[in-house]
Design a protein around this nucleic acid. Structure first.
Length: 426
DNA sequence: TCTGGGGTCCTAGGACCC
DNA sequence: TCTGGGGTCCTAGGACCC
């Protein structure tokens, strides 16, 4: 049992989770800055960060505690949320701010210990085993971290503490906000086993439904189900994982090293359905601009390109293709994406399109066996990237975008940039 | 005013080779 | 002419996370 082994190893792992991250960051920013500083704190009123319904992106990305009391949940449509609470305050997302806030948050944790693994934009695992005596009294350390984050940045976090990552993660979810929780192996039976099965990490809607069909309703039920029985129903990989997680077993370590992405892609929902190839191509080109830019920023080359079409009935289709060579060139990616689109699209009105790359390798590992047409872009793309960094994306655009009303670089939330502290970033 | 966007990992099935 | 399997690669799609 690794939980016992972990205890012998006496590792102290924590998961630090920003409470209602997007909303907290909005509120902290408004409180320390700007015009909205006079108004009420978003965290004290029913409020959400949500997309624009007119652009068909209207879902709840984060909610305040008062909004939660109205039954508003992340992922609700903004319309549903408004129905639940008509006086709801809705603020649009500002991903640039969140990326800066996230980097400041990670930077702070890295001051505490080098063993920081960023799990998501608003969550980090840290391993404080043997670090400056921080593991002598983990709860005290957790409380100190919460206090320090609040002092420096003005928002609250949850701290989950245990001997492995799974249990630290489950601990951090126990009660929010602004809490420190432990979930040591000897506490599993009391604190984790009574929870409903959908509370277990990696037991999502589909798995939870199947488990309930089997009469397994709590994490404790799952822990007591036979491993072989679970393997029979869920295949070895998933069955073993479910069994281990329900029993608090997790062998994985906190990996502080720089994260190399395995795939890079961007997608976008279009405010109105697209029914013509020309518009779809232009949309894809703007996504390819973003994907190419991000590949180059990471110093990576893609060996596989894929596209996704979501039609007006919300069905989605994928098509991907291994390339004869690796590339990070916008024009090349676009060429393959167009080919894939031609093979995939059945003429149905299109709601969203995505362009994805995978099979990524570092630049230096690219085989220089062949000279390609794209080689001239090796010099052009970086110049375009630099111009856009300095003057904005519209400083240079491919011909098709002129007078198209479409943004020439499109997609998502952008990459995280490093900023040492939030207040210096703001 | 219906339903985002960024990822990771896993599996199934077909192609292809030995 | 029919009949094998093992192994790997590729692609499509699903489940999960935030």
């Amino acid at each position: 049992m690794s939980s016992i082994k972990d205890k012998e190893n006496n590792r102290t792992i924590m998961l630090i989770d920003v409470n209602s991250a997007f909303l907290s960051w909005e509120a902290a920013y408004r409180a320390s800055y700007g015009s909205a500083g006079n108004g009420p704190d978003l965290r004290d009123i029913p409020s959400i960060v949500g997309g624009d319904s007119k652009k068909r992106r209207g879902i709840v990305l984060a909610k305040s505690v008062p909004a939660k009391k109205y039954g508003i949940r992340t992922g609700d449509t903004v319309k549903e949320a408004m129905n639940k609470c008509p006086r709801l305050t809705v603020v649009p997302p500002n991903h640039e701010l969140y990326n800066k806030a996230s980097a400041a948050f990670v930077g702070f944790l890295q001051e505490i210990t080098p063993f920081v693994e960023q799990y998501s934009v608003d969550e980090c695992f840290i391993d404080v085993t043997g670090v400056n005596g921080l593991d002598a009294d983990p709860v005290k350390t957790g409380d100190w971290i919460r206090h320090e984050v609040f002092l420096r940045f003005g928002y609250t976090v949850n701290v989950g503490i245990s001997t492995n990552k799974l249990l630290a993660k489950m601990a951090s979810e126990l009660k929010k906000p602004d809490m420190t929780h432990t979930l040591y192996p000897e506490e599993i039976e009391d604190k984790m086993w009574p929870l409903p099965i959908e509370e277990l990490f990696m037991s999502g809607p589909s798995t939870s439904f199947q488990l309930k069909q089997l009469g397994i309703n709590t994490i404790g039920d799952l822990a007591c189900a036979g491993k072989d029985y679970l393997i029979k129903h869920f295949k070895p990989s998933r069955g073993t994982m479910l069994y281990n997680y329900a029993n608090g077993i997790d062998e994985s370590h906190v990996h502080p090293h720089e994260h190399l992405p395995k795939s890079i892609g961007n997608s976008s929902t279009i405010p109105y359905d697209i029914s013509d190839e020309k518009s779809a191509h232009l949309m894809m080109l703007s996504l390819c601009e973003m994907v190419g830019k991000r590949l180059r920023e990471h110093g990576m080359q893609a060996g596989v390109i894929g596209i996704m079409i979501k039609d007006s009935h919300f069905r989605h289709y994928l098509k991907s293709e291994k390339l004869p060579y690796c590339t990070q060139c916008t024009q090349t990616i676009y060429g393959f994406a167009k080919d894939l689109f031609g093979k995939l699209w059945n003429g149905c009105p299109i709601r969203a399109i995505g362009v994805y790359t995978s099979g990524l390798i570092k630049d230096e590992n690219k085989q220089l066996t062949f000279i390609h047409e794209e080689d001239k872009f090796d010099r052009i793309d970086p110049v375009i990237d630099r111009l856009r960094r300095e003057y904005g994306n519209s400083i240079i655009m491919r011909g098709g975008f002129v007078d198209s009303g479409m943004r020439c670089v499109k997609g998502g939330t952008g990459d995280t940039q490093y900023f040492p502290h939030m207040h210096s970033a703001l």
